[in-house]
C-alpha cells in the first residue's frame, strides 16, 4: 500500500467543535477524489466524524491526517487520528457496542470500525491514542 495522488496528505488540528466538521469535509473531498461510491463516502465520513470527536473529547484534542492510498488497482482514503490523551485502559471494553466513557452512545469506536475496511488502534494508558482507518473502492 502506498500513498499517492496529486493531493498530498492533509493535516488538520482537532481542538474545537468546528474542527470535527473540517475533518468531515476533508475526508469527504478525499473520498470523492478517489471515487468511492456515495454509500462508501458516507460511511467513511461518518467514521471520521466519530473518531475526530473521540480525539477531541477523550484525547483532549489532537491531529487528523487525511490522504489517498493506492494498493494495486484499488484506491482508498486513509484517515488517522492522533492524540496525547490518557489512552484507552481496556480495549476490549472500548470496542464493545454500547460501552461509553463519555456522554456518547458508546458507538464511536465499535460503530466506526464497522464502517471501514481497515481499522487500527494503537493506544497505551497514559501514552495517547492513534486510530487509523482505510476505506477502499469496491
Amino acid at each position: 500500500m502506498t500513498t499517492a495522488g496529486s493531493a498530498g496528505p492533509e493535516e488538520l488540528r482537532i481542538a474545537a467543535d468546528e474542527d470535527v466538521v473540517r475533518v468531515r469535509q476533508a475526508v469527504r473531498n478525499c473520498a470523492q477524489r478517489v471515487r468511492l461510491s456515495l454509500v462508501d463516502q458516507t460511511k467513511v465520513v461518518t467514521a471520521a466524524s466519530e473518531l475526530a470527536r473521540n480525539t477531541l473529547i477523550h484525547g483532549g484534542g489532537g491531529l487528523a491526517r487525511v490522504e489517498e492510498v493506492v494498493d494495486g488497482r484499488r484506491r482508498g482514503v486513509r484517515a488517522s487520528f492522533h492524540d496525547e490523551g490518557p489512552g484507552i485502559p481496556d480495549l476490549t471494553l472500548a470496542l464493545a457496542d454500547g460501552w461509553s466513557s463519555g456522554s456518547g452512545l458508546g458507538l464511536g469506536l465499535s460503530g466506526s470500525r464497522r464502517l471501514v475496511d481497515v481499522f487500527e488502534l494503537d493506544t497505551e494508558p497514559g501514552g495517547g491514542t492513534t486510530v487509523t482507518v482505510v476505506k477502499w473502492t469496491r
Partner: peptide
C-alpha cells in the same frame, strides 16, 4: 439512502 445504510451499519 446512503445516510440510512450508514446509520444501520453504525448500529443506530
Amino acid at each position: 439512502p446512503a445516510v440510512a445504510i450508514t446509520l444501520v451499519e453504525l448500529g443506530l
